[in-house]
Structures are given as structure tokens and as C-alpha cells.
């Protein structure tokens, strides 16, 4: 397998994981950038534990997920039902703090970066295996009581409260799961690239994740898959002179999608239309009565 394809597939999968991590809390209208901080922490933890302490990969993965789950648990106590923008700021601030700490910590390589993380055989297969597992988990969450409650919270918090939904609990749940997924993605990232740099976990990364979620469509979990491959492919499709402007391309895509198709490319309505109508007699009825 060529190196370009290897990294394309590997990064796409990791960004799908991160996209889902962003997608889940947005079900209740929160943009949880804490996931980038979690990713940075677990990536550095994973790299360090593997290189310096020679821990085996599965142990690192589990501990990494545990670390980020605990981070999510602590933070979600405070911001479980905070408005979107507060959650955004908490995330951004934490990302900045984590980045500064990494930059100033000699042990982690500082601004130079962290290199020579040991190789794990069959990394791509492991990543895609875990991706399918997480995808199934999210599909289950989406189609559970929690998923339906989240849809109500997204549209109207007051209605949700009056229906007996515990907004804080549901927000906490999604934040914790999203942090856990980010922890997994961070560890996988460390072993895929085998070198780390604090420059990777910045505003650019957050913008890219936003692009993945909103261009693909935030109403379903499938949009993220589509746009992660699509956006990862953009720099490969163009000559390097254009590809170096990819932040401009991503930014423009983000603005355009909000202007032209605010729900993103793949929407829930679109999936409904694709499915056989007979399975959804209730929906077709609503549709008919409106027209």
C-alpha cells in the first residue's frame, strides 16, 4: 500500500471518529471542543507510555480512553447544560492551556515535537475495526431513548424540560461519550503518525472538524463519514499550489454550506426519502396532510 493511501485512509478514519465526537454533543446543541484537548492529552500520553515505559498498545488504548472519560466527566459536571457558546469557550480555553503546557514541557519535546513512537503492526485494520465498533455504538445511541430526547433538546429546551427530559444528564452523557471517543482517536493518532507536534492541536484542527461536521451534515451520523473522506481528499485532488490554501477552501465551504444548505449535504430528510416508504407509514401521513 502506498504511503499516501495509507495516511489518507488512516487520517480519514481518525477524523471520522473526531467528527462523531463533535457530532454527539451537537445533538443537544453543544459544540464540545474539549475533544481536541482530550485528543492531544491522550495522544501524548500514548506516545510517551509506549516509548518510555514500553507499555503494550491495548493497555495504552484503554487507559487513554479512561483518562479522557474522566476529563469529560469532570468538565461535564460544570457545563452539562451550559449554552453552546459557553461550552465552546471552555473547549477553546482548554485546548490552548493543554497546548501551552505541552510546548513548555521538555519531557514531551516542547515545540519541536515528540518522535519515535513504536510501530504497531496492522494499525489500519485496528483503526477501522474500532471505527465500525464506535459507529455501531453511535447508531444505537441515536436510535435510543437518549437520541430522541436529544432531538427535542436541540429544537427547544423548554419543551424538553416539560416532557421530563433531564437536560443536564443528557448533556453530560453526550459530552462524556464524545470525550471518550476523542481519547480513542488521540491514541490511534499517536500510533498512526508515530510523531506528535503541539502545532497539530490548534484552531486549524477545530476549524477542520467544524467543516467535517457541518459540510457533511449535523443531523445524521453519516454526513461525517462522507465529508471526512471528501475533505481529506481535497488536498490530494489539487496541485500543491492550490492545496496549500486548503484553510481558505475549508473556510469558504463552511460559509457556503451555512448560506446554501444550513443542515449540511446529508440531511435526515434525504435519508428518509431514500428509505422505502412502507416502513414509515406515520411519516408519509404527516407529509400528505401538510400538502
Amino acid at each position: 500500500m502506498s504511503e499516501v493511501l495509507y495516511y489518507f485512509l488512516g487520517f480519514s478514519a481518525i477524523y471520522i471518529l473526531m467528527g462523531w465526537a463533535l457530532y454527539l454533543p451537537y445533538r443537544v446543541g453543544q459544540l464540545n471542543y474539549l475533544i481536541v484537548a482530550c485528543m492531544a492529552i491522550t495522544a501524548y500520553f500514548g506516545g510517551f507510555a509506549a516509548r518510555e515505559w514500553n507499555w503494550p498498545f491495548p493497555v495504552i488504548l484503554i487507559i487513554g480512553i479512561m483518562i479522557s472519560t474522566i476529563i469529560g466527566l469532570i468538565f461535564s459536571q460544570a457545563i452539562g447544560k451550559a449554552p453552546c457558546f459557553t461550552v465552546v469557550i471552555v473547549g477553546l480555553t482548554s485546548v490552548f492551556i493543554v497546548k501551552t503546557v505541552i510546548e513548555n514541557w521538555k519531557l514531551l519535546g516542547g515545540t519541536v515535537g515528540f518522535f519515535h513512537i513504536p510501530n504497531v503492526n496492522g494499525m489500519l485494520i485496528i483503526i477501522y475495526g474500532l471505527l465500525i465498533l464506535v459507529g455501531f455504538l453511535i447508531y444505537r445511541i441515536d436510535h435510543s431513548r437518549w437520541g430522541r430526547a436529544a432531538s427535542v433538546v436541540f429544537v427547544d429546551k423548554d419543551v424538553a424540560v416539560s416532557l421530563g427530559v433531564d437536560i443536564k444528564k443528557i448533556g453530560m452523557f453526550f459530552q462524556i461519550v464524545s470525550c471518550a471517543i476523542a481519547g480513542m482517536a488521540g491514541t490511534l493518532d499517536a500510533f498512526l503518525v508515530r510523531s506528535l507536534s503541539p502545532e497539530f492541536f490548534t484552531f486549524g484542527m477545530i476549524g477542520y472538524l467544524m467543516c467535517i461536521l457541518f459540510v457533511g451534515g449535523y443531523t445524521t451520523m453519516w454526513g461525517v463519514i462522507f465529508s471526512a473522506f471528501f475533505l481529506q481528499g481535497i488536498p490530494l485532488m489539487f496541485p500543491s499550489s492550490i492545496a496549500s490554501w486548503r484553510q481558505v477552501i475549508y473556510g469558504a465551504l463552511l460559509v457556503l454550506i451555512i448560506l446554501l444548505r444550513p443542515e449540511g449535504i446529508i440531511t435526515r430528510k434525504m435519508l428518509w426519502r431514500m428509505k422505502p416508504k412502507a416502513y414509515f407509514p406515520v411519516n408519509t401521513q404527516i407529509k400528505n396532510s401538510k400538502s
Binding site: 453552546c84 457558546f85 465552546v88 484552531f203 486549524g204 476549524g207 467544524m210 467543516c211 457541518f214 490554501w245 484553510q247 481558505v248 475549508y250 473556510g251 469558504a252 465551504l253 463552511l254 460559509v255 451555512i258 448560506l259
Partner: peptide, 13 residues
Amino acid sequence: FIASMGIAMIMMD
């Protein structure tokens, strides 16, 4: 917010 984030990305680049 999302759109202004896109604008910020463009300006920064």
C-alpha cells in the same frame, strides 16, 4: 458563529 469561524479561517490563511 459557524459562518464567522469560516470567515476567520479564510482571513487567517
